[in-house]
Amino acid sequence: MLYFILRRTVFAVVLLLAVSLCTYVLFSALPSDPAALTCGKNCTTEVIERNRVRLGYDKPILEQYGLFMEGIVKGRTYGPGEAAVHCPAPALGYSFKRHQCVTALISRSLPVTISVSVGAFVLWMLLGVGLGVLAALKRGRWQDRVATGFSVIGISLPTFFVALLAVLIFTVWWPVLDFPSYTGILTNPWKWAKALVLPWSTLAVVSASTYVRMTRNGVIEVMSEEFVRLGLAKGVRRSVLIVKYVLRAALVPIVTIAGLDFAALLGGAVITESVFNLPGVGKLAIEAVVDSDLPVLVATTLVAAAFIVLANAVVDVCYGFLDPRVREG
């Protein structure tokens, strides 16, 4: 098992390096000149060229990447002399648009995204798995139809629609909540939760649908397995059987998908953050696209990719714990 974890970690690190290289090269291949984007329309060629040197865009692409990686480890100083800007490690770049280190931007928006993601994830897993199990156990009865109906609605409605509907219902028609404005959990936990209830629910409704279906199908499938029948033949209580035999087996494949979904969310819930005006990574990325703020764009993409790679590794290790058959792998 230890070997399995070690192997998986090495693999994740290699993958992360590859992903970062690809991202970096890909963005450099864009037709727009990154140096020209550093200042407005009325920029002189002189300024552009100076910025090019300051940011290292004059060097060959692989060297640029090398500098970028070095910056992550050591921190990086952009430009020489007095005009120099220093970003401490891990430096992900410098945004000329905002005149700030990208790392600072991200570390400010990441807590927001994490707050949104964790809450939504917990809520949607409870909702999705709970309804799925209920539907499977009451197959063909009204509980099943309600759960399946909910899942169909959730899947067919786009996120922005659900989000806007939620805002409309709960802040305008039936104003139990204020329009969310984000407050840090440390500043005021109550306000924090209150601001996030709507984004959480929106994401939960939209994402839980898939899980309702998966759980329902998984449970139904496992229920017909021989080992469940043998458990019953041994005299195991039905309730014990459902938790210990059925859920255990049915949830294994769900863990994989849940892990990846969660990671994708950490990379920024673009639509939800935009609708609810939450200053998270997703919103940062959108703004970077609009402003052609290349360093920010590269960094947010990298962060999102890193979460996915990380989640993949964690999921694989979890899988090993959950399913003894994978351990030898």
């Binding site: 021989e226 029948r229 033949a233 041994k234 005299g235 087996a249 003894p324 058959r325």
Partner: peptide, 19 residues
């Protein structure tokens, strides 16, 4: 079940809980 009457099934791999 299991005390007075016990059962053995055809396919022992699927009859045992893999977890």
């Amino acid at each position: 079940r299991g005390r007075d009457i016990a059962m053995v099934f055809q396919d022992p791999l699927s009859a045992l809980n893999p977890f």
